[in-house]
Amino acid sequence: MSLLLVNLLDGLVTGLLLFMLCSGLTLIFSMMGVLNFAHASFYMLGAYFAYQISTYVGFWPGLILAPIIVGLAGALVERYGLRRVHKFGHVPELVFTFGLALLIEEIVQFFWGKSHMAYEPPALLNFTALTIAGNGFPAYKVFMIFMAMAIFLVLLYILTRTRVGLIIQAALSYPETVQNLGHNVPLVFMGVFGVGTALAGVAGVIAGPTLGTFPGMAAVLGSIVFVTIVIGGLGSLWGALAASLLIGWLQTFAASYNIVIGDVLVAVGFPMPVNLDDSALRDLWTLTVSQIGPILPYLLMVLVLVIRPQGLFGKRET
């Protein structure tokens, strides 16, 4: 029971972290219609910039400065890269971000090398906040939960309660009409791209110390982010939140419990093969849920797309 509580908390941390990435990505997608394959790369840049800043002035200035730099870099990419490719169509746009992801990984290796960086949580938060049945829950993770919650609330407030939010929402659906009303739609696009990548940067800054800061960190997270927003429904902020939490808990629980598929099959009524080593299906019988945990989101995505192509919360099909 107590382990269940710990797992719920851990899953919440993973899910909220995923949401910080997904919120920016889904905004960018609904506005430009392009899946930004390089989104996780901006997350990686956030972690590296923050690490570099932390070696000079400590963790806290990095938390503010790194996302700003990442956001500026994102805005520049939009202005001089994506906007240029935009007129060629969606496929070249997507391929552009795909290539950008590869290039950013190379650039990171060029400057920081290929090893892990020793990026640590701040000393202020380096203690165990609570202990449940021998399992410590670090204060830094509590901080991560509050950060993610705060970002979600601020985002929700801006999008639904402010004038800027209204323009963004209008530009999402009717860009030409909004342009005719005298708003600078390209500027809105650039702004949203910058803010979206800055959000990814924040996620990188606070995830770097716990999940590791290394050149492969974008690739590990890269495709999961798309999977999440596709499951949640493209363009839906609530859908992104729901899917992030779902995947966070799914992965945590899959890793926590050693359920062997063979046992499940026996329980359902299949007979266990007598000589397991010679059986062609021996790999299936000995499989555990934690072995397949990381690929469960992909399975879920394929099922969702086959049954409900617009995703769980999506309104329109893409």
Binding site: L35, S223, L281, D283, Y298, P309, E317, T318
Partner: peptide
């Protein structure tokens, strides 16, 4: 059944599933 993003994402999902099972299904 559908083109565009749905096709692309299904291909991504199927690709990841097969690649992952290649490690698991040793036979």
């Amino acid at each position: 059944r559908r083109a565009g993003t749905v096709f692309a994402m299904i291909s991504l999902g199927v690709g990841e599933l097969i690649a992952a099972s290649s490690i698991i299904v040793v036979v």
